[in-house]
């Protein structure tokens, strides 16, 4: 069996297209999903504005109040400075943890089936969606950082550190959106996913160092905080943005491993959604 003449090609001379090697496929799919996310945000900005309200309240009300009562020992760092990276991580968490709803909606609408009949391995599709969630979280991050700067938080001016912030937000959001898509693959229905999402968001948030240092937590909460990827995300953001001592290599390693595990789990469960 060799080189028989090609069958008539539909539509145009250079189509259908030759396959791409996997190392080019993955970045191409991630770019495709991120572009769609940006296009959606451009068309409908209301979500951007409404989602900015909650972090703004945390900074303005919670932040300003707790700065005044000095209840939380943050050393020489003003409490608002301490809080801002935590709120950044929190808002990214909120976006990511309900991202699975989109995939359930896409399942119901037949979009998911259509995406899965393109030459896109399931892991590439999930990775694309995870980073698309990261793109959405980054637009949110811009709003929060602007507000923080206006409130007088001493943010870094080093562009390399800002690049680091982008990477950390992307990794953190990738993990939590994959957690959400994994739950979507298990829960199958939108209502159940909403319920589970609501149930785990606050424990993830309060069981982290977003609002207060791990040192002030009771022992059992410290344990939770140490296995909670959000703590590592906050630690890295705090180190990068306001220069508190942190363990960046460890933070990045935890987030990379968590994101990879999340992508693997969500991809493995994706088949359940289209069945």
């Amino acid at each position: 069996m060799h080189a028989a003449p090609a069958a008539p090609q539909a539509g145009s001379a250079d189509l259908p297209l030759p396959p791409r090697p996997p190392w080019r496929l993955l970045p191409a799919r991630v770019v495709a999903m991120c572009i769609v996310e940006l296009q959606k945000m451009r068309h409908d900005r209301t979500e951007l504005y409404t989602r900015a309200i909650q972090p703004a309240l945390w900074l303005l009300i919670f932040g300003e109040t707790f700065s005044r009562i000095r209840a939380i020992p943050t050393g020489r760092v003003p409490y608002l400075d301490y809080l801002a990276p935590g709120i950044l991580a929190q808002s990214a968490l909120f976006i990511a943890i309900f991202y699975g709803i989109q995939i359930i909606w896409e399942r119901d609408a037949g979009v998911l089936a259509k995406l899965l009949v393109t030459p896109t391995p399931r892991a590439a599709l999930i990775t694309g969606k995870a980073f698309a969630a990261g793109v959405r979280a980054l637009t949110q991050a811009v709003a929060i950082m602007v507000l923080s700067a206006l409130l007088g938080v001493a943010l870094t001016v080093n562009p390399l550190r800002w690049l680091g912030v982008v990477v950390i937000v992307m990794l953190g959001t990738a993990f939590f959106s994959c957690l959400s898509m994994t739950i979507a693959g298990l829960a199958i229905s939108r209502d159940r996913l909403m319920g589970i999402g609501q149930a785990i968001t606050m424990p993830l948030f309060f069981g982290s160092n977003a609002l207060y240092p791990i040192a002030v937590m009771p022992g059992w909460l410290r344990v939770i905080s140490h296995v909670n990827p959000l703590s590592y995300e906050v630690d890295a953001l705090r180190a990068l943005l306001i220069g508190t001592p942190g363990n960046l290599p460890l933070d990045v390693a935890v987030l990379v491993v968590a994101a990879a595990a999340g992508i693997a789990a969500a991809s493995a469960l994706l088949g359940r959604l289209v069945r």
């Binding site: 297209l17 396959p19 119901d108 609408a109 037949g110 259509k114 393109t118 030459p119």
Partner: peptide, 30 residues
């Protein structure tokens, strides 16, 4: 790569323009 598939449900993304909808699949098929 050889298949074009149209599911039973209405599967176009209503929040994107017609061009963006098609562009996505052009990207996904390289």
């Amino acid at each position: 790569r050889a298949i074009g598939y149209l599911p039973q449900q209405l599967s176009a993304d209503s929040s994107l323009t017609g061009r963006e909808n098609v562009e996505l699949f052009a990207r996904l098929f390289d």
